[in-house]
Amino acid sequence: MSVKTFGVLVFPGSNCDHDAYHAMAHVMNAETKFIWHKDTDLSDVDFLIVPGGFSYGDYLRSGAIARFSPVMQEVTQFAMQGKPVLGICNGFQILLEAGLLPGAMLHNKQLRYVCKQVYLRCETTNSLFTSNLSAGQVLQIPVAHGEGNYFTDPDRLKELQDNDQIVFRYCNAAGELTEEANFNGSVDNIAGICNKQRNVLGMMPHPERAMEKALGSDDGKLIFESILNQFATA
């Protein structure tokens, strides 16, 4: 088996790029490299992470300007070829703006930036990101965002539900989908979705910040272990 390489995109204003690099290179011991947003060669990368932060200062809308960075055309090609892409937080917002995932992000319902540990329920194991998890499994992973109120119209929501594209929902510690657990007001408690082809995942919570028990939780590792496991058996 050839060594799989993880690429972490870097935009002006990305600030979780080093967290993602640390998670992959030092915790998961995977081959990892940074990719500057002006680079356009993704030929030596097998998996792309679009990290969190405030690309282009969130001007206009979160992710709206980053979407037009030179690298994004290549990212779209990469995704169209069925290669895996994970967008975290601002990375999720960028993938929405780029049209690689459906929907949009509104301001959190209480208008505040929220930074805290939350619980997520894994809703489907039918993705390379969650293949090691069990359906209904609860993960503790932190969030840090002001615009994570996922919105899509009722028809599109039904499509997401029917196609099993909702990968994570906000829940309480017992795994119940309560209104209170849905702190940002997302439709249907949505915390993460994948595309129809199931190779692109966007999620607001930060698994790369939940890699070591000393930092509160290492549940994020379960997601990256799923990915590496899928690569090993591919």
Binding site: A64, F68, L96, G103, A104, L106, F151, T152
Partner: peptide, 8 residues
């Protein structure tokens, strides 16, 4: 193409 997001 950029200034408005038709989803919202």
């Amino acid at each position: 193409q950029l200034l408005a997001n038709e989803v919202m």
